[in-house]
């Protein structure tokens, strides 16, 4: 019983984290058809910037609780600056090229970001855990959990709800959906697809940085955190169905719960569980759990 509770809580916390870090990836893929490996770099940039910002914030002796707003601010600023830089500076030159070529372009950007981080922050790990410890812990069925971790569930829910609302209930969101559905027709109908691309990429970048910024207090950041993350996030969005926000949420839950079950019940399988689940899902639902309808080319 205790194990069951632990699996559920651990699983949902981990899923929330996965959802935050992979929502941007799936959004960018949905709209732009770009599998953005640089997402890992944006995540790392968000994490590093957050650590630096928190460090000087607490050194300055400002009210501790407002540090959570600082994390949000970091995500917005990093996403805005680097999202614009990458989209305007690099990707814009590539539109119309093969999807796989663009994947490699983002991989190149990712490598450059990795070394740039090393040049700026050095190779040593950094941590700034003040916001993590601030909220203390609670007991659930006698097990101690960190309140901050539980807060991630709320953050993920709010992020998901805002994305859903923005896409389905606002005019701009509907334009976005139109572009997702058919880029050429949207352009023909007068949608400024390039602007939509820029805005999408920046939002996606902010989500990546948001993941990094809110992960930073829980752990220690090193230059390689981006690499570790990116395959995980890929697995989540592929399981859910690329380009679907609901899919990313379900994918995150599937991966999170399976991983937690494996850790508690069968620790030896932890390394396989994500890829095992991914292979299984793809074997039965070749396009992921939430597939998009694609017209056949004749």
């Amino acid at each position: 019983m205790l194990t069951l509770v632990a699996i559920l809580v651990d699983g949902v916390i981990y899923s929330s984290w996965l959802f935050i870090v992979s929502a941007g990836l799936t959004l960018i893929f949905g709209v732009m058809k770009i599998l953005n490996i640089a997402h890992g770099g944006l995540y790392a940039l968000g994490a590093y910037t957050a650590v630096s910002a928190i460090g000087s914030y607490f050194a300055g002796g400002y009210p501790p609780l407002a540090s959570y707003a600082l994390l949000l601010l970091v995500a917005v600023v990093v996403g805005l600056v680097f999202g614009l830089l990458i989209e305007r500076g690099v990707l814009r030159l590539m539109y119309g090229r093969d999807e796989i070529v663009i994947v490699l372009v983002t991989y190149g950007v990712f490598l450059i970001i990795e070394d740039a981080i090393k040049v700026i922050w050095g190779a040593s790990p950094y941590y700034a855990s003040q916001p993590y410890g601030l909220l203390g812990r609670v007991q659930i069925s006698g097990l101690a959990f960190s309140v901050y971790d539980l807060g991630l569930i709320a953050l993920a829910s709010v992020t998901g709800a805002l994305l859903w609302w923005g896409l389905n209930r606002t005019r701009n969101g509907k334009l976005l959906l139109a572009v997702i559905h058919d880029r050429e027709i949207s352009a023909a109908m007068g949608v400024d697809v390039r602007r939509v691309f820029t805005v999408t990429f920046v939002i996606g970048a902010m989500l990546g940085a948001l993941g990094g910024a809110f992960t930073a207090p829980t752990t220690s950041v090193v230059p390689s955190i981006g690499v570790e993350l990116i395959v995980l996030a890929f697995a989540v969005v592929v399981i859910g169905g690329l380009g679907s926000i609901e899919g990313a949420a379900i994918g995150a839950l599937v991966v999170g719960i399976s991983r937690a079950s494996s850790v508690h019940l069968l620790p030896e399988a932890e390394l396989f569980v994500i890829y095992g689940v991914m292979s299984l899902v793809l074997a039965f639902r070749p396009q992921g759990l939430f597939r998009r309808v694609v017209a056949r080319k004749i």
Binding site: E99, F234, V238, F272, Y275, G276, L282
Partner: peptide, 28 residues
């Protein structure tokens, strides 16, 4: 038999999944 049913990114990701399963087996 399985993989030839897939195209595009799904082929890429499923082949990636299989290679990572081999990786996991070898690490274990």
């Amino acid at each position: 038999f399985l993989l030839t049913r897939y195209r595009e990114i799904f082929f890429a990701m499923l082949s990636l999944a299989f290679s990572m399963i081999l990786y996991g087996l070898l690490v274990k």
